[in-house]
Design a protein around this nucleic acid. Structure first.
Lengths: 134, 134
DNA sequence: AAAACCTTGACACACCTCTGGTAAGGTTGG
DNA sequence: CCAACCTTACCAGAGGTGTGTCAAGGTTTT
């Protein structure tokens, strides 16, 4: 079976993932290999490349698989993407009335580590047309 | 202090979130209220609206705050967005060699519940220019 | 100055994500 | 037919997310 597709263990060695993770990644929908007639996973060159770049992507930006899964979902569900973008399009944070300077210093329990993602976009068009309050 | 901004407890009641969650949401960077001179959070009409729509967004699409946080990050980090989109742009899954039909039926441990996000995009341009395999 | 707010920090817990195992059973090939 | 693969299913455990609650201490208001 030396066609041009690798089995899961071979692919694992080539890509740096474990076989367990390759199945998990498949389950998450990110890299779904073809199957042989009897159900064996067959990773082709394209899949192997995707697995390698996926690993690098996750490491470089410190992402989780779930992040990429969500991005995939965003790319496939136009309505979801539209609503999320619309929500985000409202001004993200407008430090204006603020008096102090370094409020908000992240929880930092013994559990929590980091997460970071501070906003840093000067409000271009400030039109706080609020809704009905009470 | 009936200016036009609500305190955290008032905002909590109006939006359906708990005060604890309002702080958590602020920490995550999604809705950051202004602060009074002494550090009290002040939620204006815009923030209250955002909190309400956020709640609806999460419920309607079954998202987590972290998903929206990631979307925010995507919107702010062009490089990240570019690389993620590039990764996703490669064909997501090309059932072609597949023989069986309903392989892949989700792990279903007692822990795991669901996650779903099956791909359903007929490959338009199939050009599997693979890389070097071995 | 006491009551009723607010603030941050921390403990706790449930559930999810990510990973590694192990077990029971099908497939492949000598 | 037997070894060496593969498959799914389940147990386990570390660490993140989402949430409540409580403590110690400032602020506002009466």
């Amino acid at each position: 079976m030396t066609t041009d597709a690798l089995t899961i263990h071979e692919s694992a060695e080539t890509t740096g993932w474990s076989p367990r993770m390759l199945r998990y990644i498949e389950r998450s929908g990110l890299v779904v290999p073809a199957r042989s007639a009897s159900g064996y996973r067959l990773y082709g060159a394209a899949e192997l490349q995707r697995l390698r770049t996926l690993k690098e992507l996750l490491q470089r930006f410190d992402l989780g698989l779930s992040d990429v899964v969500f991005a995939l979902r965003l790319g496939q569900d136009a309505q979801l993407r539209g609503e999320v973008e619309e929500w985000l399009s409202a001004e993200p944070a407008k430090p204006d009335d603020v008096a102090g300077d370094d409020w908000l210093s992240w929880e930092q329990d013994k559990h929590q580590k980091l997460l970071a993602a501070a906003a840093a976009q000067p409000a271009t068009t400030a039109d706080p047309t609020g809704g009905t309050i009470g």
